[in-house]
Simulated scan of single mutants.
Amino acid sequence: MAGVTRYRGPAPRPRLIWQWQDDAACRREDLVLFFGPDGERQPERERRERKAKAICAQCPVRNECLDHALAAPEKSGTWGGLNEEERASERRRRQRRKTPVHVVEVPDDKACGGCETVKPATDFYREPRSSDGLRPECKDCTYEQRSQAEVVAS
């Protein structure tokens, strides 16, 4: 293959995926500040993490860094201003936010299953598992049932 020149340097990184790292405030910092040495004691770890988080707080790509750490998921070190435990908590929070919420429309009025009178919805206790989000009996009937149960029990 005469005349062909081969590139002998490191393979170039994909610019679009990792470009945020080029602008990171931690780029020229010592890695030990963000990942810590083995056998590090709690007081030293807290001081080191405070310093790392101070750098992250000034970083222009903090959100991209955190998003990467949560998506990867990075298990150690300080990424996007959060340590391991904080990232695990944030990951769970984001997962809960993705979970659909079951919304029940509560009617304005409802017929009580106990006294059979129509009352405003505010006169009923909430029951998330019911189709309308309310208990079948009004608060008065529920109170009477509990009172009668206490008399029988004693």
Rank of each mutant, 00 (worst) to 15 (best):
I17W: 00
I17Y: 02
I17R: 10
W18M: 04
W18A: 05
Q19Y: 03
Q19N: 09
W20A: 07
W20N: 06
Q21H: 05
Q21G: 01
D22I: 12
D23I: 09
A24L: 01
A24V: 04
A24T: 02
A24K: 03
A24D: 00
A24P: 00
C26L: 05
C26H: 08
C26T: 10
C26E: 01
R27P: 00
R27W: 04
R27Q: 09
R28V: 06
R28H: 08
R28A: 08
R28C: 00
E29H: 08
E29L: 07
D30M: 09
V32A: 10
V32R: 13
V32W: 03
L33A: 06
L33I: 12
F35R: 12
F35H: 12
F35E: 12
F35G: 03
F35Y: 10
G36F: 01
G36Q: 05
G36T: 07
P37G: 10
P37T: 15
P37S: 14
D38K: 15
D38W: 08
D38G: 05
D38M: 11
D38R: 15
G39L: 13
E40L: 11
E40F: 06
E40V: 12
R41D: 09
R41W: 03
Q42F: 03
Q42E: 11
Q42C: 02
P43T: 15
P43I: 14
P43S: 15
P43R: 15
E44Q: 13
E44N: 09
R45P: 00
R45A: 11
R45D: 06
E46M: 11
E46F: 06
R47Y: 02
R47L: 09
R48V: 03
R48T: 04
R48I: 03
R48N: 02
R48S: 02
E49I: 14
R50E: 11
R50L: 08
R50A: 12
R50K: 14
K51D: 06
K51Q: 10
K51G: 01
K51A: 09
K51F: 02
A52D: 08
A52G: 05
A52C: 07
A52Y: 09
K53D: 03
K53C: 04
K53W: 04
K53V: 03
A54S: 09
A54N: 08
A54C: 05
A54F: 07
I55K: 14
I55A: 07
C56R: 02
A57Q: 14
Q58I: 00
Q58M: 10
C59Y: 03
C59I: 11
C59D: 05
P60A: 15
P60N: 14
P60F: 09
P60L: 14
V61C: 05
R62Y: 04
R62Q: 14
R62V: 12
N63R: 15
N63Y: 06
N63A: 13
N63C: 05
N63T: 15
E64L: 13
E64Q: 14
E64C: 07
E64F: 04
C65F: 02
L66P: 00
L66N: 06
L66C: 04
D67W: 08
D67T: 15
D67V: 13
D67F: 05
H68Q: 11
A69H: 06
L70D: 02
L70H: 01
L70V: 03
A71V: 10
A72T: 15
A72N: 14
A72P: 00
